[in-house]
Design a protein around this nucleic acid. Structure first.
Lengths: 142, 142
DNA sequence: TGACTAACCTACCGAATTAGTGGTATAGTA
DNA sequence: TACTATACCACTAATTCGGTAGGTTAGTCA
């Protein structure tokens, strides 16, 4: 498994925020209930999206979270990069991987590189708005 | 990371067997030395390929392993399926996953399914012979 | 036949990651 | 000031990964 609950939950939260947008802020408690995800766990995942500028959070009564753009301006890849610790399909391509001595002669490295590129392109081509289309209730207006 | 050393090593072993084929059997000890992989660890991975019919092993002196077909008749996907415990990109799509209650309403499931299909198609389209072409020394003859 | 060789099998192990829980601090509102 | 909601930090049980160690089985060669 390459994509953990962190990335999957983050996507579901963004879709939920989009679908239930009413001009104000949506508390994570509501999202957690609707999505049947532990609030405590979401509270650990969601700050990454705030730091990345994908959503904005407001403390206190009447607070919660809100998208910063319209759903078609988010792509899945950006969400995964912010929430997942690692997306590389093999250890050799990980960010902090120590350079491999066999790199020059490795017959499999190009395969992994090509796959990684395909994967990146695929997820970049999908927007939150695309994901929402799988549902009949698409009531997001910005 | 989705593809572990098991799948990666298995591919390298197959390529090595193809490149060093001389009509007989190649002992895993030689492959392990050339590929700089622990022989003991390889001995735990390689039986899966034998069971899957990708290679055949012969005990005793003069023994070792040999491919059962020509390199262009192997695709990467089949190798990975035999050696990796799980290839699904998300837990929901794993073989022994318990059916998800939210399946019907899940807006992200189709995304993961499409990605999984793409991934499968990609790896099925690549053969061991394709991987060998990255090297100048291609001396396999059947 | 006996030494040798190489595949095969099983048990164990340390480190890292995942998917959480619990508690508390901080910031902002009514 | 009470309340609410985000933000932060420490801890944990379960699983996986990447091996190692040791022994067994099956076959070859002299």
């Amino acid at each position: 498994m390459i994509i953990s609950t962190r990335g999957r939950y983050a996507l579901r939260v963004l879709i939920d925020l989009a679908e239930h947008y009413n001009g104000g802020f949506t508390p994570m408690k509501e999202v957690a209930e609707r999505q049947d995800i532990s609030l405590k766990y979401l509270e650990r995942i969601i700050p990454a999206l705030t730091k990345g500028g994908l959503i904005e959070g407001v403390h206190g009564k009447g607070g919660g979270y809100r998208l910063t753009r319209s759903p078609d301006e988010y792509n899945v890849w950006d969400v995964l990069v912010l929430t997942e610790t690692e997306l590389a399909p093999v250890a050799c391509l990980e960010d902090h991987a120590k350079p491999c001595v066999r790199q020059a002669e490795c017959r499999t490295l190009p395969l992994w590189q090509e796959f990684y590129e395909n994967m990146k392109d695929f997820f970049k081509s999908k927007s939150i708005a695309d994901l929402m289309q799988y549902s009949p209730s698409d009531n997001y207006v910005i």
